[in-house]
């Protein structure tokens, strides 16, 4: 199914990656604004996070040259490498959700009518996703707080950077995922009560 309202940036930027759904006019305007705001916010965070890949490349090149040519490995490349990589995939999860990029088994799902698909997804988000991510947020916050209070540092390299900012990536990821889930639920509610014209692309 091709959606005429398929957003333009998707064609330009990510091609046929993922199976996002767009809202249906059945959704009242204020709620559609909420959806639009959340989606746009996720995209902006996604752009910012994606630039970390460039930083990661730069850090590694610096280390290889510094060690290989000058015989002087850096103190920080190791810690920065895993921190940047972890930040990329964790904070990128919400925008991946926004574009329907978290893979699913399409063997049966693709054959369901859009309303059934929407109903399955709504049940999934409300019963499993949001409660699970909420508890993840709480525990992740506790761990980050403990690291902050005790001044925990990385013990893996001589650089020993403070760890709490990186530990905070876990609760932040959960928070972003919950917010994005709100938008996903609203979009599916609109499909469920709508004309049945707008399902998965």
């Amino acid at each position: 199914m091709t959606d005429p309202q398929r957003p333009q940036y998707q064609d330009e930027l990510i091609g046929d990656f993922g199976t996002p759904i767009t809202g249906d006019p059945a959704l009242p305007v204020p709620l559609r604004r909420v959806v639009a705001a959340i989606d746009r916010g996720s995209e902006l965070i996604g752009y910012a996070v994606s630039v970390c890949i460039l930083f990661l490349t730069a850090v590694i090149i610096f280390e290889v040259i510094s060690r290989g040519v000058f015989g002087a490995p850096t103190m920080w490349a190791y810690d920065l490498s895993y921190m940047l990589y972890g930040t990329i995939f964790m904070l990128g999860a919400a925008v991946t959700l926004r574009f329907g990029g978290h893979i699913r088994t399409d063997i049966f799902f693709a054959k369901f009518p859009p309303r059934t698909q929407a109903a399955i997804d709504i049940a999934f988000y409300l019963l499993l996703f949001i409660p699970g991510m909420w508890l993840f947020l709480v525990v992740g916050y506790d761990k980050a707080l403990h690291a902050f209070v005790t001044g925990e540092r990385s013990g893996l390299s001589p650089w020993r950077p403070l760890l709490w900012p990186y530990r905070a990536v876990i609760p932040l990821t959960s928070l972003l995922l919950i917010v994005q889930a709100v938008s996903e639920i609203l979009k599916r509610v609109s499909v469920f009560y709508g004309s049945g014209q707008h399902g998965h692309e």
Partner: peptide
């Protein structure tokens, strides 16, 4: 661990 700092102090290029 701390031997990393010790070897650095001794001039080794400690690779993590």
């Amino acid at each position: 661990g701390l031997p990393v700092d010790v070897m650095e102090e001794m001039g080794a290029a400690v690779v993590t």
